[in-house]
Simulated assay, not measured.
Amino acid sequence: MLLKGPLWRRLLAGSVLASVALPLVLLLLYRVVPVPLTPLMLIRLVEGYGIDHDWVSYDEIAPIMVRSAIAAEDGKFCSHWGFDWGAISEALDDADDGGRLRGGSTISQQTAKNVFLWPGRSWLRKGLEAGFTVAIETIWGKRRIVEVYLNSVEFGPGVYGVEAAARYHFGVGAGQLSGRQAALLAAVLPNPIRFSASKPSAYVNRYASRIEGRARAIGKGMYPPCD
């Protein structure tokens, strides 16, 4: 039976309100509460991977891991407001020339995607990602963004967050990571299914060496809280 006008409108209004309210509630909640699960974790679970995920606070993560992640993924993290416009411009130019819409994403954008959205490179997904990026930059701040990022990002098949990754790959906690170990973990972030931090290919070893150099060059004021 078809819904009559008033009821149909109330249901539609309720659906719209819920679609707006739920993300806002999660944004506020995740500002202080650990993120328990992400869409990617659920997708990987369906694909046959387990979920190895242990949350640790920012202060329990070795500072060199924070610097290594920034050196590998987003060198301008402390100076931008969520977007690296130079990288975005290059990606859009490539798309205009007929290429595939590609990355150029900052740590803030990756965090927004990891926590709230699904993998993919569609314009719709990127548009939603932009909105969440502005929100977390405004509501969370840099320190919280890095804390959530390093606790949610995929470091291997079914391995999420730096604590689980450090124990899985090196048998230590996130706070005991050496500079080389941190660089190896950061080096696999572009493709943690293909690459391994504990069994690095020649490419991963070379890339990790470059990350080590960049991480050493990052001073105290160049990583969160970005003073």
Score class of each variant (00 low, 15 high):
residue 59 D to I: 09
residue 45 L to N: 13
residue 46 V to S: 12
residue 27 L to D: 02
residue 12 L to H: 00
residue 14 G to A: 00
residue 6 P to S: 09
residue 9 R to E: 11
residue 48 G to I: 04
residue 55 W to H: 08
residue 8 W to M: 14
residue 29 L to H: 05
residue 25 V to G: 09
residue 24 L to E: 07
residue 35 V to S: 00
residue 31 R to V: 00
residue 48 G to C: 06
residue 32 V to C: 12
residue 6 P to M: 00
residue 34 P to I: 05
residue 6 P to A: 09
residue 45 L to F: 13
residue 30 Y to N: 04
residue 43 I to C: 09
residue 50 G to V: 04
residue 25 V to C: 09
residue 43 I to A: 14
residue 33 V to G: 10
residue 7 L to R: 12
residue 45 L to P: 06
residue 27 L to C: 08
residue 26 L to R: 08
residue 21 A to V: 08
residue 60 E to A: 09
residue 17 L to I: 07
residue 29 L to C: 08
residue 30 Y to S: 01
residue 34 P to Y: 05
residue 8 W to G: 14
residue 7 L to V: 12
residue 12 L to N: 02
residue 41 M to Q: 05
residue 57 S to G: 15
residue 52 D to V: 10
residue 39 P to T: 05
residue 28 L to Q: 10
residue 8 W to I: 13
residue 43 I to T: 08
residue 59 D to E: 15
residue 60 E to L: 03
residue 60 E to F: 00
residue 32 V to S: 15
residue 36 P to T: 04
residue 9 R to P: 03
residue 45 L to T: 13
residue 35 V to L: 01
residue 52 D to Q: 14
residue 12 L to W: 07
residue 53 H to T: 03
residue 41 M to L: 10
residue 8 W to S: 14
residue 9 R to L: 14
residue 53 H to Y: 03
residue 58 Y to R: 15
residue 57 S to M: 11
residue 6 P to Y: 01
residue 22 L to I: 11
residue 53 H to K: 11
residue 11 L to P: 02
residue 6 P to G: 02
residue 44 R to F: 06
residue 35 V to T: 01
residue 13 A to G: 11
residue 61 I to H: 06
residue 58 Y to P: 09
residue 29 L to D: 10
residue 55 W to M: 03
residue 15 S to L: 14
residue 35 V to G: 00
residue 46 V to E: 15
residue 19 S to W: 08
residue 32 V to E: 15
residue 35 V to Y: 01
residue 17 L to D: 05
residue 20 V to T: 11
residue 47 E to A: 10
residue 13 A to L: 13
residue 33 V to C: 11
residue 13 A to M: 12
residue 42 L to E: 03
residue 10 R to K: 03
residue 8 W to P: 05
residue 49 Y to P: 04
residue 13 A to T: 10
residue 44 R to G: 03
residue 6 P to T: 08
residue 15 S to Y: 13
residue 24 L to K: 07
residue 8 W to N: 13
residue 54 D to F: 11
residue 39 P to G: 06
residue 56 V to C: 03
residue 49 Y to C: 04
residue 50 G to L: 08
residue 32 V to H: 13
residue 45 L to D: 11
residue 34 P to H: 00
residue 13 A to K: 12
residue 51 I to V: 14
residue 54 D to A: 14
residue 60 E to M: 05
residue 10 R to F: 06
residue 53 H to S: 05
residue 54 D to Q: 15
residue 62 A to E: 03
residue 12 L to M: 06
residue 45 L to G: 15
residue 62 A to C: 01
residue 14 G to Y: 07
residue 62 A to W: 00
residue 26 L to H: 07
residue 22 L to D: 05
residue 41 M to A: 06
residue 13 A to N: 10
residue 40 L to H: 12
residue 53 H to Q: 07
residue 54 D to R: 15
residue 43 I to K: 10
residue 55 W to K: 04
residue 31 R to L: 02
residue 26 L to A: 08
residue 30 Y to C: 00
residue 35 V to D: 04
residue 20 V to K: 10
residue 14 G to T: 06
